[in-house]
Structure formats: C-alpha cells, structure tokens
Amino acid sequence: MRNETSNNHLDREFPMSNRNFELIADVAYHITGIKLGDHKRNMIYSRLARRIRALKLQSFDQYCALIEGQEGPEIHEFVNAITTNLTSFFREPHHFEFLANKVFADLKRQGQTRRVRGWSAGCSTGEEPYSIAMVIREIMPPSGWDIKLLATDLDSNVVAHSMEGVYSADRIADLSTTRQQKWFMKGKSGEQVKVKSSLQNLITFKQLNLLHNWPMKGTFDFIFCRNVVIYFDKETQKVLFDRYADILKPNGYLFIGHSETLHKVSDRFRSLGKTIYQKIR
C-alpha cells in the first residue's frame, strides 16, 4: 500500500496528502490544461496554503472540497494561484531583435495594407507586450499605420497588473537610459515607474483561457507564446499550435520559449532558429 503522506512534510501547517495533490492536479488539468507533476508539489503547497489561510480553512481536505466540482468562486482564485508568472522586459532579447530587424522591416517594405496585428499569449504581468510595444514605437512610422497588440493571460490578477502598467523601478534597471526616459514615468518617491500612455494605447489586455474559444476574428502577423506550453501535455500542445497556425497570416511568425519546441508537435511551421518559427501552411 502506498504511503498516503509520501513526499510530504508531516510538520507542515496544513498536511497535503497524495489524494489531495492528485485531486488538485486533476482539477488544474481539466480547467487549464496545465500538467502538475510531482516536482511541482512544494510550489503548489506554498501557493494553496495561502488560499487556505485567506479562507480561514483548517486543511487541504476542506480546500479540495471547494474546488472538486470545478466551479464556484474559489476556482477563479485557484487558477490565479497555480499559474506561474515569471517575466522581465526584453526577456530573450533575440526575439525582439528579430521582430525589429525582420518582421517589422518586411512589413514596412511591403506596406500594402499598413495594418499590423500581434498577440502576446501568456502576457503575465505585462513586461512582454510592453517590450513589443517599445519596438513598435521605435521602428514603425508614427502615423499612417493601423497597429494593435493583443495581450492575454489566464490569470486575471496579472492582467489587471499589466493594464495598470506600474512597476518597481528596479524592474527597468537593465533597460537603456534612453528607453527608461522615453517610455516610463517615475513616481514621486522614485521607487515606482509607470508605462507611458503612448505604449499602453497600442495594447488591449484581456483575460483568456487558451484552451477555450477565442473571440478574435482577424488574423495576426505574429504571436508570442513563450514559456506557456511547457505546462501542457503533447496532445494539448498539438491542438494549441494548430490553432495558432489557423489564426496566423500566411508566413506569419510564432515565438516560443527557450525550453520549448515544435519538433514532433506541429508540421505547420518551419524553424528559423532560436525558437522562432514561420507558418508554412
């Protein structure tokens, strides 16, 4: 018989049994498509223990009873708690260099429609879409173009954070002085900065579950979906990348995370190297 408390610290504030973790993982998978392996146990404990305290519950058994039906007000908080939001401005800078030197350069040269659409799918706290917006403002002509960027995330809390556009000053410390001065306003204390409206006006932020129906009607020139599919199993990845191909324009671009790949997942893209892909069908 398996030890019900294996891989669990018995002296924790709220012991989490194997049965608890398996139910949590099952609910997470069915709602979000995220696979929670056993190596995520400590992270899940830490995040959900906060919810147990906030709800003034006594145990993981009580918490699991709240989410077991996969509905009710706590499900929203559960999803926010388990999703990971680690990001920075211009993370994986080669992607933004390619965006500037290839994607936008080609769009400017061709210039027939003067319409550009991009999507940051899994935008976290906003650093990625604001980085894209900086490139747009720095590269593309200031007038005569219809340019819009969609930024979505499963976690409604980080979407709200993104919309506000306020960050601690140390978050932009690695940006050039020119970019800091051009795109951010400092608060009175100097400890916080706010993204300028010229960037915010380019972006529409929305909460979106990638596994549900997408409300977007048009097609995109490029999609950033970085460090998102690592939480999905292969079958879910195949479905998702197929949907991305469907909504990208012919020869559109897909940017994924440094630890992700389309190898044996999708044959609708060709690799351009450095986790940049171009739609071929």
Rank of each mutant, 00 (worst) to 15 (best):
N3W: 12
E4Y: 08
N7Y: 14
N8R: 14
F14W: 12
S17R: 11
D26Y: 14
V27M: 06
H30P: 09
I31L: 06
G33F: 08
G33A: 07
I34Q: 05
K40M: 06
I52V: 06
K56S: 15
K56P: 11
E71M: 12
F78D: 00
T83L: 04
T87A: 07
R91G: 00
H95F: 08
V103E: 03
R109H: 15
T113M: 11
V116A: 04
V116C: 06
R117L: 01
S120M: 12
C123M: 05
G126C: 10
E127M: 13
P129Y: 01
M134A: 07
I136Q: 01
P141A: 10
S143R: 04
D155T: 10
V158R: 00
H161T: 15
H161N: 12
S162E: 03
G165Q: 04
S168T: 14
D170N: 15
F184E: 02
M185W: 13
S197M: 03
L199I: 07
N201E: 00
K206R: 15
M216N: 09
C225E: 08
R226A: 05
Y231W: 03
D233K: 13
V239T: 13
F241T: 08
F241K: 15
P250L: 05
L254D: 05
I256G: 03
K264S: 13
R281F: 09
